[in-house]
Design a protein around this nucleic acid. Structure first.
Length: 561
RNA sequence: UGUCCAUUGGUGUAAUGGUAGCACAUCUGACUCUGGAUCAGCCAGUCUAGGUUCGAGUCCUGGAUGGACAACCA
């Protein structure tokens, strides 16, 4: 009884090719331009390219699409490699489009000889005007019919640096009236006297994407060049260059890019957030970058699961941000040790608890994984509980502490609130309670039940920690939808970061950043019971602990409220 | 008003001419020393008009809606 498997459209294509013997194994590639940090959208592409290859016993190349020296930098090539490794993938080979510049040049010469490319002296504006519009055909360049000899001579001199930036380009000679704009004599090379991060000053002409990408795929014998939908209209041109050059036929397939609500995914906008200091950097925990999620406390596994979970197709999609959080919660629920920390403390005094007494009680590290064992937490007469866990007069559905009501302090005792003390402004400064000594450990021998269980820390033993409470970076679902005169920046959430000083159980003093098996910094992750998942921030030191809130717990009380 | 792509519950994603399914969200209930987790259940869908066919979400034609393309960006 074979289980019926549902394949996505890419798997269908791969299996069909395998079945028909079009190829024996597959080779994919992940082709980032090193002009920014990778974001969660790239994670989808990475999981797809590497995941597909893995599933079908193939391999994946990492190839930097570095054909525009003015925007690219080695800072980005380093971060990109780190992020891919952190996600848990390893490439078969690392390549650079710039490795192929010489070959690409030779092929361009070949196309000139075949009468399929020419040097155009028009200005940028003239070229644009000559291209026509989506509904009107373009006009031929006056330089379109230069002889092969003249084109060869001019192109070589372009390479030799005889001309200024922008004075000439090499264009493919196709059809200025073609209904697909991509075919209206696309530019193959432009002159750019700029230093390239790898080739230095060797070149002053650089190939355009359309002329470089497909040929790079072909050189590497990529079987499946998987890219996002906006390149769909480029595919005929991709095929055209390969056909005219008679080179190894790579094929391009397109899928719908990932969109998530309450966030932006364009590199340009992310760069702007960084450059204009709306966030602290590319790895700000509110950023949708891979390094941002990493610092936020996301695990690589949770991101991989997320990408698997959302699937892949060709239709535009907007994924609910909660899907991402759910992936994280799923994973962390299984692996994160539980601790108690009070983020907004209010003092509690147990009047009938002996003044000098303290007890170290057993607390379970992770109820989902008994093997994680237990730890001791100190209890004493004065405690802190969460301010929102007490109401003087409470509605019926409120299960927490209120005057005259009994609740459980987790792993400790049942307590009943008796009275409150307030300051001049009427803020509660202290809640006076009594406890039942018979309920030690959290169970009543007489079998009586209690509706609520609260987390707490002993005031005398508590340690302070800075806790950064993150919320979504944007206040609206579609930050890019803006009215006239506004930008996505107007949609930033002013409350996306709140910093508090929390009271933590003493065992948290040991919380330290670590490194993973690839040497990449890895935070210590915890569940602060009832409050959410938290992790150490790189800013954290033994003297000054800093925790980031990765995400909250699901909170059904918040809905009732 | 050109070319290309897409359209299945609120959101994603399957069904490959033969019973429209799954996940997330929502809502109910059970259980619980985290209002967490877990378990059970409910609600809810083929853009539209024709055509082909014994039979259409699927194939064909028209329409509607959304998206991509007019960078010397990728």
């Amino acid at each position: 009884m074979e289980e019926k498997q549902n394949l996505n459209f890419l798997e269908e294509i791969i299996e069909e090719g395998l079945r028909e013997g079009t190829y024996k194994s597959i080779l994919t590639r992940f082709p980032p331009e090193p002009n920014g940090y990778l974001h969660i959208g790239h994670a989808k592409s990475i999981c797809l390219n590497f995941g597909l290859a893995k599933k079908y016993g193939g391999k994946t190349n990492l190839r930097f699409d570095d054909t525009n020296p003015v925007k690219e930098d080695t800072e980005y090539v380093d971060s990109i490699q780190q992020d891919i490794r952190w996600l848990g993938f390893e490439w078969a080979g690392v390549h650079y489009a710039s490795d192929y510049f010489e070959q690409l040049y030779e092929w361009a010469v070949m196309l000139i000889k075949k009468g399929l490319a020419y040097v155009d002296d028009q200005t940028q504006e003239e070229i644009r005007a000559g291209r026509g519009t989506v509904t009107e055909p373009g006009k031929n360049s006056p330089y379109r019919d230069r002889t092969v000899e003249e084109n060869l001579d001019l192109f070589e001199r372009m390479r030799n640096g005889e001309f200024e930036d922008g004075s000439k380009v090499l264009r493919a000679k196709i059809d200025m009236a073609h209904p697909n704009m991509q075919f209206r004599d696309p530019i193959m090379y432009r002159i750019l006297h700029a230093e390239h991060h790898r080739t230095g000053n060797k070149w002053c002409i650089y190939p355009m994407y359309d002329y470089a990408h497909g040929q790079s795929d072909s050189i590497e014998h990529i079987t499946h060049s998987i890219c996002t939908l906006e390149f769909d209209i480029h595919r005929p041109l991709y095929d055209w260059f390969i056909a005219q050059l008679s080179i190894w036929p790579s094929h391009q397939y397109e899928f719908a890019r990932l969109n998530i609500n309450y966030t932006v995914m364009s590199k340009r906008k992310l760069l702007q957030l960084v450059k204009e200091h709306y966030v602290s950097g590319w790895d700000d925990p509110r950023m949708p970058t891979i390094c941002g999620f990493r610092r936020r406390g996301y695990t690589a596994e949770s991101i991989r699961n997320f990408c698997e979970d959302i699937g892949v197709a060709k239709r535009d999609n907007i994924i609910d941000y909660v899907r991402l959080e759910n992936s994280l919660r799923d994973h962390l629920n299984q692996v994160a040790p539980r601790r108690m920390a009070v983020l907004d403390p209010v003092r509690v005094v147990i009047d009938n608890y002996p003044e000098e007494q303290e007890e170290w009680l057993d607390a379970v590290n992770n109820p989902e994984n008994p093997a994680d064992g237990t730890r001791k937490v100190p209890f004493s007469r004065e405690l802190y509980i969460e301010r929102e866990d007490f109401m003087e007069v409470a509605p019926k559905k409120y299960f927490r502490l209120s005057l005259g009501r009994e609740v459980r302090l987790r792993y400790a005792y049942f307590v009943t609130a008796q009275s409150v003390e307030k300051d001049a402004e009427g803020n509660i400064t202290c809640i006076r309670c009594t406890y039942d000594p018979a309920t030690r450990g959290g169970d009543a021998p007489d079998g009586r039940k209690v509706k609520g269980t609260l987390h707490w820390v002993s005031a005398k033993h508590a340690i302070d920690a800075e806790v950064r409470l993150f919320d979504r970076l944007f206040a609206v679902e579609s930050p890019d939808d803006v009215e006239e005169g506004k930008t996505f920046l107007d949609n930033l959430n002013p409350d996306s970061l709140r910093v508090v000083t929390a009271k933590c159980e003493p065992s948290l003093a040991e919380a330290r950043m670590g490194v993973d098996d690839k040497g990449i910094p890895e935070p210590a992750r915890y569940q602060f019971e009832r409050m959410g998942y938290f992790c150490t921030d790189p800013d954290s030191t033994p003297e000054h602990l800093v925790f980031n809130r990765s995400c909250t717990l699901k909170d059904s009380w918040a809905k009732i409220k």
